[in-house]
Computed example of a mutant assay.
Amino acid sequence: MHRIAVLDDYQSVAADFTDWSRLPEPTDVVEFHDSVDGEDALVARLEPFDVVVAMRERTAFPRSVLERLPNLRLLVTTGMRNKSIDIAAANERGITVCGTGSQPTATAELTWGLILAVTRHIPQEDAAVRAGGWQQTIGGDLAGSRLGVVGLGRLGSQVATVGQAFGMDVVAWSQNLTDERAAEHGVRRVEREELFRTSDVVTLHLLWSRRTRGLIGADDFARMKPTAVFINTSRGPIVQTKALVDALRENRIAGAGLDVYDQEPLPADDPMRTLPRTVLTPHLGYVTRSTYEVFYGEAVEDVAAFLAGAPIRVIDPA
C-alpha cells in the first residue's frame, strides 16, 4: 500500500477536491492541517510516506531534507514552479517531481482587493462601524491616478488591464521589459526610478529568482510619494523587508497591502503583524475554489500516472 501525505491543508478541504479512489493501487492518504518548524520535525512527519503532495512553496524540500526521506519516490507540487524544492537533488535520489496546472486570474483579483482595501481603508472602516463608529478615514482615488506595475508578465498584465478600466494611467518596468511589449498591453514603459517616484500605487508581479531576491529596497521606497501605497502578491523575499518596515513606521509611504512574506506562515511575533496602515492576507493569491479544483484534481492525476509507470507533468531541473 502506498502512503500519501498531503501537506499544508490549512482549511481542511483537500479531501473535498480530490477522489483518491481513482488511483490504480491501494493508498493510505493523510492530510496535514498544520505546518512544522525545522527539518527534524518535517523529516519525522514524512519519513513513512512514499508520495508527498506539497502546496506551493509552503514546505521546503532542500537536499538536506530529501536525503533523509529514503521512502520518498514521488513529490507533487501544486503549480509548475516551486523554488522550495531542490529538483536536482530529488532526481539524484530517484525521486520524481511533478507539478499541476493553475488558475490564471486568482492572484490578479486578490491584488485589486488589496489595492482597494488599502486605498479606501476598508478594514479600518469595517472595524469602526462594528465598534459603533462612523467615517473614520478619507480614501484615495484610483481614477486619474498612476498605477506602477513592476513586472508585466501574465499577472502584471492582468492587473494593468483592470487599472485601465478604473481610469488609471498605467506604467510598467522590469529588467527585460521593452517599449513594444508594454505597448501591446496599452501600457507605457518607464525607468524604475520614475515608476517609484510618480506612481500612486506600486504593485509587484515578478517571479522569485536569484536575480529578483531583494530587488526592491530602501532606495525604491525613498522615491515613493508619501501618499502612495505598495502592494506585493508575488513573493516576500523579492522585497527587502526591513526597508519596507522602516518606510511604513516612519510614515514615508501611505500604506501597504501584503499577501506574501519572507517566512510563511508568518510567525506570531513577526513585526509585520504590528505594522501601521497595512492590510495583511495569508498568501491567499491562489486560494480559490477553481484553483483548488485544478491543484488537487491534477495532483491525483500525477500520482495515478506515476503508479502506472508513465509520469506526467514532470518538472526537470532548470
Rank of each mutant, 00 (worst) to 15 (best):
I87H: 07
E57Y: 06
R81I: 14
P104N: 06
A106E: 00
N91R: 14
G94L: 09
M168T: 04
A131E: 15
G99N: 04
N176H: 15
R73E: 13
T178H: 11
E109R: 08
R58L: 11
N82W: 03
T107D: 08
R120H: 09
D141K: 15
T100H: 01
T77N: 09
A90P: 05
A89W: 05
E92H: 14
R56H: 11
Q124G: 03
I122E: 01
G148P: 03
V65E: 12
A60E: 14
L110Y: 03
V162G: 08
N71L: 07
R81G: 15
A54K: 14
A117K: 00
A90E: 06
R120Q: 10
V118P: 00
K83L: 15
L66G: 06
M80R: 13
G156E: 03
L155W: 01
V159H: 01
A89E: 12
R146K: 15
I122R: 01
G156A: 04
L155F: 07
P70D: 05
L66M: 11
G156I: 01
I115K: 04
R63L: 14
P104I: 01
L69M: 07
R146L: 02
R81C: 14
M55H: 12
V170I: 10
R146D: 07
A131L: 14
P123E: 03
V129P: 03
V52T: 06
T161Y: 09
A108G: 15
L177H: 09
L116R: 04
R130V: 12
G99V: 04
G144Y: 06
G99Q: 05
G113A: 01
N176C: 13
P62N: 13
Q124T: 13
A90W: 08
M55Q: 14
V118A: 01
Q124L: 12
D126N: 13
R63T: 14
N71S: 13
L147I: 05
I95N: 05
V170M: 04
S64I: 05
D126H: 14
G151E: 02
K83Y: 15
T161S: 12
T137A: 11
Q175W: 07
S102M: 15
I115R: 09
L152A: 09
V129S: 11
C98H: 03
A88P: 06
L142S: 05
F49D: 00
A131P: 04
G151Q: 06
E92C: 11
E92T: 11
R154G: 10
N82E: 04
A108C: 08
S145H: 12
N71R: 15
L177P: 02
G133L: 11
V97R: 03
L110Q: 02
F166P: 01
T59V: 15
F61N: 02
V150I: 13
P70L: 02
P48S: 03
E125M: 09
I95C: 05
D141G: 12
V65W: 08
H121E: 09
R63F: 12
A54P: 00
Q136N: 09
L74S: 01
L147T: 00
Q136V: 14
T96C: 11
R81T: 15
G167L: 06
W112V: 03
W173K: 07
P62Q: 14
E92S: 13
L110M: 09
L69F: 07
I138R: 15
R130F: 09
A128C: 05
T161N: 08
P62W: 10
A60T: 12
N71M: 09
Q103F: 13
L142F: 04
G113M: 02
R120W: 01
T137M: 12
A90R: 05
T100W: 00
G132C: 10
